[in-house]
Computed example of a mutant assay.
Amino acid sequence: MKEKNILIVEDEMIVAMMIKLKLLDMGYKFAGHATSGEDAIRMVKEEKPDLVIIDIYLKGKVDGIEAATEILKSHIVPIIFLTGDPSRETRVKASIANPVGYLQKPFMDEELEYVIESAFHKAKSPVFKQMAQDMAA
């Protein structure tokens, strides 16, 4: 299970490096780091990660929700949203991309590990695969 590649999409370098170190400590592989929605879309095509952890609010023209939606049009990959915004409005807006999990900044190591394991479990379900195929259509 831990042989999975995870892509981090986060424009705050300190947060991205902290997540990377935690992923490596947990035994996961690091598929790369993108700082913008545009880079995330390109990197998913190139690296084909098993999971994407993406900040909802990214600098640039494409935010995390738009990037996730675009990624899911061509790749069936579970998405975990990362955000510092606890509002219901943000979660409702993000739900359009059918994320398999959310991480609220700041988070504990245990929360990161739980959300990742839960995401991989959900990604195995026929419901996830069907939703991903529907988004791609």
Rank of each mutant, 00 (worst) to 15 (best):
K59F: 06
G84D: 10
V15Y: 01
D50C: 06
F30E: 01
V92A: 10
V62C: 00
E46M: 11
I8D: 03
Q130N: 14
E38D: 13
E12R: 01
Q130C: 10
I65Y: 06
Q133W: 12
A31Y: 00
I14F: 12
I41M: 06
E3S: 12
Q130D: 14
K73T: 04
D25K: 15
F81W: 07
I80H: 02
E89G: 11
Q130T: 14
I8H: 00
V52P: 02
G101M: 02
D39L: 11
E10C: 02
L21K: 10
R42C: 07
V9L: 00
H33Q: 08
I96H: 02
K4I: 06
T90D: 04
A40G: 04
M135V: 01
V115Y: 03
K93W: 09
L23I: 03
L58H: 00
I14C: 00
P78M: 07
E113Y: 09
N98R: 10
G101N: 00
A137S: 13
K59W: 05
K73F: 05
G84H: 12
E38W: 05
L58G: 00
F128H: 08
F120P: 00
Q130H: 13
V9R: 04
S36Q: 03
Y57P: 05
Y114A: 14
T35E: 10
E66K: 13
S118Q: 14
D55P: 02
L72N: 13
S125P: 10
M108L: 15
L58W: 05
R42V: 12
M13W: 08
A137H: 11
V92F: 13
M135F: 12
S74I: 10
L21W: 08
A40N: 01
V9K: 03
P86E: 15
K129P: 07
Q130V: 11
K122R: 13
I79M: 08
A136L: 07
K61V: 14
K129A: 06
A119T: 07
I79C: 09
V77C: 05
A123W: 05
L82C: 08
Y114P: 01
S36A: 07
V52K: 00
K61N: 14
S36E: 05
V52Q: 00
Y57V: 14
D39I: 08
E47I: 05
M108I: 12
S74Q: 08
E89K: 12
D25T: 11
Y102H: 09
D63E: 08
E46H: 09
K48H: 11
V92E: 15
